[in-house]
Design a protein around this nucleic acid. Structure first.
Lengths: 113, 113
DNA sequence: CATCTATATTGATGGAGGTCTATAGATGCT
DNA sequence: AGCATCTATAGACCTCCATCAATATAGATG
């Protein structure tokens, strides 16, 4: 089952308890967000004007080895937060806004106002 | 520095890249959400009508040892997602809606509509 | 005080994950 | 073809963490 489907079928945390299956899927995505490097990578891609970022630009932004960055990108891609496309020598990563939006909705709390 | 403060000072991922310090703080909270048991615990507390749940009720909802549940509750409390209050023999946990709300805002994506 | 219940802490263990080096694969250029 | 560059994969190392059994702490009650 696609992770995005699980997110779409999971009620907001504040509405009703998650099933074990839903929790397992949702946890995979949050676990991907639970690393500072991945969070920074995601924010770099998500906030980029053109919408896409070359791997080389991301690698330059960190003092980490290239394989380590590649590993983090794979994790973010596997949970459906990023997609990638190769064009000639370079690979460009893009945000999947639907996944991020579903996560945001999941955490939404009834307005305390 | 309080984690909630860090969340309040962190821009939405889609707006600008997180600093290393912001990412470290935010990652701690998402890491806490990156476990299926903790997600279910959080949803149980967040969706409870009265707003508070006794530890014994949570323990009953899982086939895990009592110390394991206690450990997960501590993790959720340490990152500011839950608070606890002891009343006589029992300890009651409550959601901290501000923290969840800040997380939700952090993941908000400009409406694709 | 003694004891029972509810919850937290400690210490141990097995497995997951972040990082690195080395290497492989893919693309373009000469 | 051969080489240089960009990215991904494989394997190793080390740390972190989820879980448990055992024990400690706190409150109620006899």
């Amino acid at each position: 089952m696609e992770l995005l489907e699980i997110l779409e079928c999971s009620p907001p945390l504040a509405r009703e308890p998650l099933s074990a299956g839903q929790a397992a899927g949702v946890a995979r995505v949050f676990k991907a967000l639970g690393d500072p490097v991945r969070l920074r990578i995601l924010s770099i891609v998500a906030s980029r004007a053109g919408g896409e970022v070359c791997v080389c630009d991301i690698t330059d932004a960190f003092e980490l080895s290239q394989p380590t960055i590649s590993h983090h990108l794979k994790v973010l891609k596997d949970v459906g937060l990023l997609t990638s496309e190769r064009r000639s020598s370079w690979v460009y990563y893009r945000l999947v806004p639907e996944t991020l939006g579903e996560l945001s909705a999941l955490l939404t709390v009834p307005t305390t106002v």
